[in-house]
Amino acid sequence: MDARANAKAAAIRRTGGKGQKKPSSKTGGAENFAFFSGSSNGFEVSPKAVLVISLLYIGIVVLLHIFGKVSSSATASS
């Protein structure tokens, strides 16, 4: 027996003689596409609104960091 056959036999022994199988879905993955169709639950947010909200959040965090640095340096120098 060559090395490849030994490796294959060892792999079969480790798995108990059964090959790896994908779990089957009874719905066929239809629930994954509900997000892309009009029938999904919840509220709809446009991509433009998500971008604006994200940029506003990032801007607020940056401003708070700047405010924290300014206020800490002002108290340290007094």
Rank of each mutant, 00 (worst) to 15 (best):
R4D: 05
V52G: 00
F35Y: 09
A7K: 07
S40V: 05
K22Q: 10
G38D: 12
I66D: 03
G38P: 01
A7N: 03
A34Y: 01
A11C: 08
A7C: 01
V70Y: 05
L64S: 12
I66S: 06
L51P: 01
A30F: 04
P47K: 10
I12F: 03
V52K: 07
V70E: 02
P23M: 02
Q20Y: 13
Q20G: 03
S54W: 06
G28W: 00
S24W: 06
G16A: 04
V61A: 15
G17W: 04
S77F: 08
V50L: 15
A76G: 05
A5P: 00
A11K: 08
F36S: 11
I60C: 10
K22C: 02
H65V: 14
H65P: 00
A76H: 05
A34S: 10
A49T: 12
G17E: 03
V50S: 09
N6S: 09
A34T: 13
S73A: 15
S25I: 05
S71A: 15
S71Q: 10
V62Q: 02
I12N: 07
P23H: 04
A9H: 02
N6I: 13
D2L: 02
K21P: 00
V70T: 05
S72K: 14
Y57D: 03
K48D: 06
T15A: 13
S37W: 02
S54H: 03
T27G: 08
G29I: 01
I53V: 15
F36L: 14
Q20N: 08
K48M: 07
A30L: 13
V50D: 05
G59E: 01
A34H: 02
I12V: 13
G42K: 01
K26S: 11
N32M: 08
V50M: 13
R4C: 01
S40I: 02
K26G: 14
K48C: 00
A9S: 11
